[in-house]
Amino acid sequence: MKTHQQTQKTSGIYALNVLFVLSTFSVNGQIILTKKDSNKPETDKPADIYWHVKAFRPEAKLLRIKAIDKEGNYHDVKAIQDSDDTSILNVKALVDGERLPIKMIVKGANDRFYPVKAIAKNGTLVDIKAITEDGEIMGVKGFSRSGNIINLRAITKNNRYYNVIAISPQGKVNAVKGIKMFDSEEEAVINGVSIYAHIKAIHQD
Rank of each mutant, 00 (worst) to 15 (best):
T3D: 14
Q8E: 06
K9N: 13
K9G: 02
S11N: 15
Y14Q: 07
L16Y: 08
N17L: 15
F20S: 05
V21K: 15
F25T: 11
G29A: 10
I31W: 14
I32R: 11
T34C: 14
T34N: 08
T34M: 13
K35Y: 02
D37C: 04
D37K: 13
E42A: 07
D44V: 02
A47W: 04
Y50W: 10
Y50N: 00
W51R: 03
V53A: 05
K54W: 07
A55R: 09
A55G: 12
F56L: 05
P58N: 03
L62R: 03
L63I: 12
I65Q: 13
K66F: 08
K66I: 06
V77M: 11
K78T: 08
I80Q: 00
Q81Y: 02
Q81I: 04
S87N: 10
I88S: 10
N90T: 07
V91W: 02
V91M: 06
K92R: 10
K92M: 07
E98Q: 13
K103G: 03
V106L: 00
V106M: 01
K107Y: 09
K107P: 00
A109N: 13
N110C: 05
D111S: 06
D111E: 02
P115I: 08
A118C: 01
I119Y: 00
I119K: 00
A120G: 02
K121T: 03
N122K: 11
L125W: 12
L125R: 08
L125S: 02
D127G: 04
I128Q: 01
I131T: 05
I131F: 09
T132M: 10
E133M: 06
G135I: 06
E136A: 03
G139T: 14
V140H: 04
V140K: 02
R145F: 08
N148G: 05
I150H: 01
L152P: 01
T156R: 09
K157N: 12
N159E: 10
N159I: 06
R160E: 06
R160N: 08
S168P: 15
Q170T: 15
G171R: 03
G171E: 04
K172G: 10
A175C: 10
K177F: 11
G178L: 10
G178H: 03
I179D: 10
D183G: 14
D183I: 09
S184M: 01
I190W: 12
I190V: 14
N191E: 05
I195W: 01
Y196N: 13
Y196M: 05
A197N: 11
H198C: 12
K200H: 14
I202E: 07
H203L: 15
Q204V: 10
Q204K: 15
Q204P: 12
D205G: 13
